[in-house]
Design a protein around this nucleic acid. Structure first.
Length: 806
DNA sequence: GCCGCCAGTATTTTT
DNA sequence: TACTGGCGGC
């Protein structure tokens, strides 16, 4: 096989196929390329059956990219290589063998919300006061325990006599029981239940060990203990395990990633080959120098130094703004000038520490007409209507899933409230592990304390669900989704209580879900509902990044890992924001190191141009904060930086410090005054640093009040009134609607029919022209069946469809 | 059982 | 600022 396109180290990595290999791949060093070549090399030059190769990534996106590249490099055979994320690999194994540890193949997967809901139930049952023992703490502890492969018994044993820990152990035990009863697993379970399966059923493990003779793991620095264990188990027989990672890019320790997996790989696998990829092909020399300079301040890392043969390139652009609003404006104008220079919008990405920072930028971009897309924030699958409909589907597919049944039993309102649900829940719990919530629900009439009237309602619900389950067993996933929406009356109820826009956006999202269902139907035959739900549960927003869209990309620094763009902006480089307040005040001095790695990840996303910015003050959570510039900026050698002329009074490099000192004196004085009159002083942050900048820079002086000057200043900065468009408007592109009830009248059912009848030709905004096949009279609206010329036959509510007779 | 108000709370989050 | 959950009134 021709490896001439690779450098020496890369070739070595490709050719070292046998035994354990640790590949330390710096940012932009072509690790995906190496992995792809390695797979192709194994197949072509070593005669390995692709069936025997497993490549594990963390994100679906990375898996898809790897899939494409392997397909391209290794030809027809490549399809048989198993390329997958940790979680979807486990789902696949558990679907096949989960019955051995007591799950059916249609087990539900619980996301954080489901987990929380379930936990709340458990706490209620155990009469645990969640004010004293906070839910988040419990979730964090349980997740940590699972990451470390501690079951409830081990956890209880380790708790010893500590009251809180013992309490948590009790909750953990009960939570596990509940999930088991629900035939459900949370994300952590997917990994540990697979391990449990392997240890309980050695022949299952052996069959996989035998299959996966060559295993590769990407982003190894982010694996946690259980993932490491899983991989070790799989590699147990052949020990051909190649892990690829960069300890400098470990940014998920807060979620349990265990950096020692990479730092101690050589101990776990004595004799492992260690290969370093240090040549960077991505960034300019200058950008790389900046990144190296920053990361050099960390102590806990494997020593390495990235180098490049790339051109020196432009200096790193640094701009310091007066406030967050000015920053948004400055970034916008920098983007416009990049576009004038010939870059396209999709060459550009903006990275920030917290999702909340996207707001200010967004508002500005709407005004300036800069097309943008935001990744992260609310995941598509986390949107309410999507979660609701998915809960219907889960409940249909796996009625034992109490969480999903509870979620939708009263959505839309069916007069089955919490009190009834609690009675059922208690009855089920009293009936032992054999009696699930669903089984109890079916017997509601026998439960003491539930009235005949209420029982009638639950029976109606049960029969609806049974109908839907029947329907699902005989129809495609797409049609099932359609039927669920219709039969549940979901949208009809939404239309009554919500604004036009809200309903429109819900409809749009549901259409999107149907598109995804249809795609799933096409790709899988037979397409099972369980399969669809399990796939959908493992999808994150960043997976949908569409590189071809002519928009700038906006995302958190975390989401940017693994991506690259010619032009990168990192905004909000201020102490307290980045590095975050939490990391600064943390008892763990290493917390800032994780932030620094995050900074390193951010900088190394850039290929050609890097723009860094800070604002002297910004609104955070409705409160204006004055922060110092980030220590990370100071770690970049001055000669690599070019101060942008948009900067707010930065003619002298030390000005900021001197100004800060002056402000500090003023602030302290003010603080003393305030203390004497007993007023609350500054935010916690200000106290922490003792250097509050109480006023904007060039406000010279005495006389006019700070507030007044700040206000004047804001007035001059304020863009046209139209900038105050709500961000959502950017998505829906249309005038914003208020909650004026008259706007809902459009949805009220017309008394004399929808204005068209069977056989009429009609036009729909999205689906085009079609012929009306049927008009059905339902209590709230007319249900119209239209055979569209292009889009096929669809059933819709007349009130929403807004069909025009032609 | 439902609805609305108020108070508390707020990093990052591949799955 | 913006969302969520808990609680009290109907």
């Amino acid at each position: 096989m021709n490896l001439s396109q690779l450098n020496e180290m890369q070739r070595k990595a490709v050719r070292t196929t046998e035994g354990p290999v640790l590949l330390l791949a710096g940012a932009g060093s072509g690790k995906t390329r190496v992995l792809t070549y390695r797979i192709a090399y194994l197949i072509e030059s070593c005669g390995v059956d692709p069936w025997n190769i497993l490549a594990i990534t963390f994100t679906n996106k990375a898996a898809a990219e790897m899939r494409d590249r392997v397909d391209a490099a290794a030809g027809q055979q490549a399809g048989r290589v198993w390329v997958s994320t940790f979680h979807s690999a486990c789902v696949r194994i558990l679907r096949a063998y989960g019955s051995r540890i007591g799950y059916t193949s249609s087990f539900s997967i619980y996301d954080t919300d489901d987990q929380k809901a379930c936990l709340r139930e458990v706490c209620k049952r155990l009469e645990i006061d969640t004010k004293k023992l906070n839910e988040k703490t419990i979730l964090r502890e349980m997740s940590r325990a699972k990451d470390e492969l501690m079951g409830p018994e081990e956890y209880a044993a380790a708790a010893g006599s500590d009251f809180r820990l013992k309490q948590i152990a009790g909750v953990y035990t009960e939570y596990e029981n509940q999930l088991k009863k629900n035939n459900a697993m949370d994300f952590d379970d997917l990994i540990c239940k697979t391990i449990e399966l392997f240890s309980r059923e050695p022949e299952v493990l052996e069959s996989y060990q035998d299959r996966f003779r060559y295993i590769m793991v990407d982003e190894y620095q982010d694996t946690n203990t259980s993932q490491f264990r899983l991989i070790s188990l799989l590699a147990g027989r052949y020990r051909n395990i190649c892990v690829v990672g960069d300890d400098d890019q470990s940014i998920y320790r807060f979620r349990g990633a265990n950096i020692y997996n990479i730092l101690n790989f050589e101990k776990a696998y004595p004799g492992a080959a260690v290969i370093r990829l240090e040549q960077n092909y991505r960034s300019t020399q200058t950008i790389l120098d900046a990144a190296n300079a920053v990361i050099a301040n960390n102590t806990e890392r494997k020593p390495k130094k990235l180098w490049t043969e790339n051109a020196k390139g432009d200096k790193v652009h640094l701009t310091v703004y007066a406030d967050g609003r000015a920053e948004a404006g400055g970034v916008a104008s920098q983007i416009q000038s990049l576009v004038r220079d010939g870059w396209t919008y999709n060459d550009i990405a903006i990275l920030y520490r917290t999702n909340a920072q996207s707001r200010a930028l967004e508002e500005r971009f709407v005004v300036e007409g800069i097309p943008y897309r935001i990744f992260g924030g609310v995941n598509f699958y986390a949107r309410r209507e999507i979660k609701d409909v998915l809960a219907y589907l889960k409940a249909i597919d796996n009625p034992d899933d109490e969480q999903s049944v509870r979620r939708i039993i009263n959505v839309p309102r069916r007069g089955i409230g919490d009190v009834t649900l609690d009675k059922i829940s208690r009855y089920a719990a009293a009936g032992g592990s054999g009696l699930t919530f669903w089984a109890a629900l079916k017997k509601a009439r026998e439960i003491p304390g539930i009235s005949a009237r209420t029982a009638g309602k639950t029976e109606e619900f049960v029969s609806m669900m049974e109908f839907l389950a029947d329907f699902a067993s005989a129809h495609s996933v797409r049609d099932t989704v359609d039927m669920v929406v219709e039969r549940s009356g979901y949208l009809i109820a939404a239309a009554e209580n919500e604004t036009k826009e809200e309903v429109e956006s819900r409809k749009e999202n549901l259409n999107e879900l149907m598109t995804k269902a249809a795609a799933f139907d096409e790709e899988n035959s037979p397409a099972s509902l369980s399969g669809f739900l399990q796939e959908v549960s493992l999808v994150a927003d960043i997976d949908q990044l569409d590189e071809s869209a002519p928009t700038i990309a906006m995302m958190t620094l975390h989401s940017a890992k693994g991506l690259e763009f010619p032009c990168i902006f990192i905004t909000g480089m201020e102490e307290g924001l980045f590095p975050s307040y939490m990391s600064i005040v943390s008892d763990d001095p290493k917390a800032v190191e994780e932030e620094r790695r995050l900074c390193y990840v951010g900088i190394t996303r850039a290929q050609k141009e890097l723009f860094l910015s800070a604002a002297k003050c910004r609104m955070i959570r409705g409160e204006t904060q004055y922060n110092k510039i980030s220590r990370f900026l100071k770690e970049i050698p001055r000669e690599l930086l070019a101060l942008d002329d948009r900067s707010d009074s930065w003619d002298d490099p030390d000005l900021y410090e001197r100004a800060a000192a002056r402000q500090n004196r003023l602030a302290k004085q003010q603080e003393r005054e305030e203390m004497t009159i007993g007023k609350r002083t500054g935010s916690r942050l200000l106290k922490l640093y003792g250097t509050p900048l109480k006023e904007p820079y060039h406000s010279s002086s005495v006389g006019v009040s700070f507030e007044k000057r700040l206000q004047d200043y804001r007035e001059t900065q304020k863009p046209a009134a139209s900038s105050r468009v709500k961000p959502e408007a950017a998505w829906t592109s249309g005038p914003a609607f208020g909650k004026d009830p008259s706007e809902l009248t459009a949805f009220r059912k017309a008394a004399d029919g929808p204005g068209y009848g069977t056989g009429d030709r009609v036009c729909h905004a999205r689906f085009g022209e079609g012929t009306v096949k049927a008009v059905e009279d339902t209590p709230r609206d007319y249900m119209v069946t239209v055979d569209f010329d292009e889009a096929g036959t669809r059933k819709m509510m007349a009130g929403f469809a807004k069909l025009r007779k032609i």
